[in-house]
Nucleic acid binder design. Structure first.
Lengths: 150, 150
DNA sequence: CCGCTTACTTGTCATTTGATAACTAAAAGG
DNA sequence: CCTTTTAGTTATCAAATGACAAGTAAGCGG
């Protein structure tokens, strides 16, 4: 058996693990955020708010690109969110074409609460681990974050 | 400062890392599967096929539960997929109410191709790592899979 | 100043998805 | 048998999302 063939097999197993992992992460985070949806906010709108929450202030083009939705449609959704008083538009002082979006008091409060709920569920998971295990988890997060996901 | 307060801070940082990680995984897997959508298959339909692919044969109720879509709607989508010749229904011999779903030749071929494309992208990432780093990644996947995600 | 590009908005339409009510057919349990 | 439960289907309707055409208004490069 050639070395390249061995590598192929090793890599293939790694890929299988990777696929199973991605699936698990998706199921898990869906499970964790289940029932969070507050206030007549649609799934897409929730994702938008989540993105603004971690990246604000952002322009509409940026959100549009990251959420992978066309500008017209993103504009429409942001209008709805603004009408619901969950976010605000602020025109750039130096380039008045640009609109910076950030969460309103209400929007931030809502997202804070959502994240607190997620945190509670996360802590529930972590609670049953020993100190060393938690350190291991932290290390694993760092490894994957630096070497695989970005 | 009390020990519990220290723990609180540690845990909070861990949670921040966790959130960033989840976000990165989502962005990354969206990036990886971007452009995979073949053959007039909608996003939901792709998810259904993916689920069938890894779990076949499954009943319609099972799919319905895992994808979190009501039976009537799932029935409708599966009908469409069956019409597109991507999957097949087989009635259970012992309980003729049950319908087992599995991918057709065409459907399996399509999903094989999709996964191969994802694998290529994954290998592209792994290619720039050393052997030890890859082992580290593998270990990290295992740790998180066993301790956090299920 | 003028044409070009960028950032975004408005409006419209088709498709997808979600929700619900009413149905059939088969099993399961007295 | 006969009721109840389970598994799935069909039909209908509303809402969410996607795609696109045409618009405005501000910067930018000469």
């Amino acid at each position: 058996m050639l070395v390249t063939e061995v590598n192929q097999i090793v890599d293939n197993q790694l890929f299988q693990k990777f696929v199973r992992f991605i699936t698990a992460v998706h199921e898990n985070s869906k499970e964790m955020t289940k029932g969070i949806q507050l206030e007549s906010v649609t799934p897409v709108q929730y994702r938008i708010l989540e993105y603004i929450y971690v990246s604000e202030p952002v322009t509409i083009s940026q959100i549009s690109e990251c959420i992978d939705m066309s500008m017209p449609n993103m504009s429409r959704e942001l209008k709805k969110l603004t009408e619901k008083q969950l976010c605000e538009k602020i025109t750039d002082v130096h380039d008045r074409r640009k609109q910076y979006i950030s969460l309103s008091e209400k929007g931030r409060g809502m997202m804070d609460q959502a994240f607190r709920e997620i945190e509670v569920r996360f802590m529930g998971l972590m609670g049953s681990l020993t100190e060393e295990e938690r350190a291991e988890v932290e290390r694993a997060l760092e490894v994957l974050q630096s070497k695989v996901f970005r």
